[in-house]
Write a protein that binds this DNA or RNA. Structure first.
Lengths: 140, 140
DNA sequence: TCAACATTTCAATACTAATGGAGATGTTGA
DNA sequence: TCAACATCTCCATTAGTATTGAAATGTTGA
């Protein structure tokens, strides 16, 4: 991932509504979700949703396709994983004191092990009602 | 990491100067770097640097201490790893199709393996002159 | 073709962020 | 104490972002 793409992605994720859209879309999986359904979950009007969704799409974090009168948005997995790789590689640059705790923290308490083949297919990690606060053992 | 902290961190990383500051500080390691030295590397004046550095400090991504007439900035490792963990856990939520490629990409081509104990102490992964463009095998 | 619907686009407004210069603050060595 | 230095703070300006409501676009089923 190039630096300018990473900048766009960070900017896209730095807004509350957009971050929650991404979390909902990750949860929704490859089938994605209609703009209206997302707006309903977030309590945001159609115009607002359209604004943020197009922002996310420009950053390459989601893609969309029309299905009848709905427009379905789904997360662009490659960009998200590219962004994580960017942080791991270009930003944290092989310093184990940065990466190792991240891996540990991501696995600890996390419902799912991420890197193993033993991970379930459709985990539903993020429940929408857990979004505002946080779960249990956090704080980096 | 709480959602609001992650939002702050993403916002902080979404600006070209600030992203480069972080990369320079990761490269510099625990000893950190003086504000002026960073400004010189980035070709930015003192006022601009002060603005961006305090932005990064508010986001918890760097810490500072005075050393004589210099003010030394160093990356706050816990926040950076917490942010990666946030992406892995709360955002990508155990979907291996997101995490696994990130790990693979971070390791492939990357000078250093990240998660193993065999990683060198002081790798100098990022050379400043490689910042604008990119290295070799990228594109998520 | 038409009404109802889902979504986007547009325009106005308010807000926040980025920049550059001038001056203030704190530190050093003489 | 003072001049030189490193950095920060303040101010004005400019640019970009978020929000809202109204209108436009495209789709469906009758």
């Amino acid at each position: 991932m190039r630096e300018d793409q990473a900048l766009l992605a960070f900017a896209a994720l730095s807004q509350e509504h957009r971050l929650r859209i991404i979390r909902l879309l990750v949860e929704a999986g490859p089938e994605g979700m209609a703009a209206g359904a997302l707006g309903e979950k977030l309590g945001a009007g159609s115009s607002k949703m359209s604004f943020h969704l197009s922002h996310l799409e420009q950053a390459g974090l989601v893609r969309s396709h029309r299905d009848g009168r709905l427009i379905i948005y789904a997360v662009e997995v490659a960009t998200l994983s590219g962004l994580i790789a960017f942080l791991l590689k270009d930003c944290c640059g092989g310093r184990p004191e940065i990466c190792a705790p991240a891996f540990a923290e991501a696995r600890a308490e996390g419902p799912i092990k991420c890197s193993g083949p033993e991970a379930p297919k459709h985990p539903r990690l993020i429940s929408a009602d857990r979004l505002p606060g946080e779960s249990v053992a956090e704080e980096a």
